[in-house]
């Protein structure tokens, strides 16, 4: 049977979505959050959810909200898209062309943004696209660096479409 996330895991969820992205607590309250160790999952609560969870064996449930990356948790593209309309902070707006570049190359150099270093919500003309990692300029890279956290496998159709549209193709 799946178990509810422990207090430390719930705190991690709050730290990322409420504190880092400014998403109001009420937007996350509807989720029943549980842990499988490396992933925190969210499932919308339902009248008979407990009975179903006790009676049947499930492979996966709901949507991934946070994934463990070493000692840290990172937000998922899936969750950022779902709660995207509530994001207030650490949002990095990119043009369609910049989004295609980061999808194809995996990173975008020379990004200067008024965001805190760390995970950001990548947004484009159609709203929140997913998760990126922003690094401030330092001795290794004197320009800001934005690293894609979008799954290449999940976005393969868009990547091939963008590659086909490149000049000279």
């Amino acid at each position: 049977m799946l178990t509810s996330a422990n207090p430390a895991e719930k705190r991690a969820l709050q730290a990322i979505y409420e504190e880092r992205f400014g998403i109001p607590a009420r937007a996350m309250e509807e989720w029943f959050v549980y842990s499988t160790g490396s992933v925190l999952w969210g499932l919308r609560d339902a009248p008979h959810l407990d009975e179903a969870l006790a009676a049947l064996r499930f492979e996966r449930t709901g949507l991934p909200l946070l994934r463990r990356a070493g000692r840290f948790w990172k937000p998922t593209t899936v969750a950022l898209q779902v709660v995207g309309k509530f994001v207030l902070r650490n949002m990095l707006e990119l043009s369609r062309q910049e989004l295609e570049t980061i999808l194809i190359e995996g990173e975008l150099r020379g990004t200067r943004a008024d965001v805190e270093q760390g995970y950001v919500a990548l947004t484009g003309p159609d709203g929140v696209v997913g998760c990126g990692l922003y690094l401030d300029p330092d001795e290794d890279h004197n320009e800001g660096l934005l690293i894609s956290q979008l799954s290449k496998a999940r976005w393969s159709g868009m990547i091939s479409s963008a590659v086909q549209a490149l000049p000279g193709r």
């Binding site: 509807e30 989720w31 969210g42 499932l43 919308r44 339902a46 008979h48 009975e51 179903a52 969870l53 009676a55 049947l56 064996r57 499930f58 492979e59 996966r60 449930t61 709901g62 949507l63 991934p64 899936v78 898209q81 779902v82 999940r154």
Partner: peptide, 26 residues
């Protein structure tokens, strides 16, 4: 699972039983 995540369906639980033998506990 990939489709359900892309579509953001919030209330789906995935089970893997042979349909003909699906448990009758729920």
């Amino acid at each position: 699972a990939a489709n359900l995540e892309r579509l953001g369906t919030p209330n789906v639980l995935i089970s893997q039983y042979r349909g003909e033998n699906y448990p009758e506990r729920f």
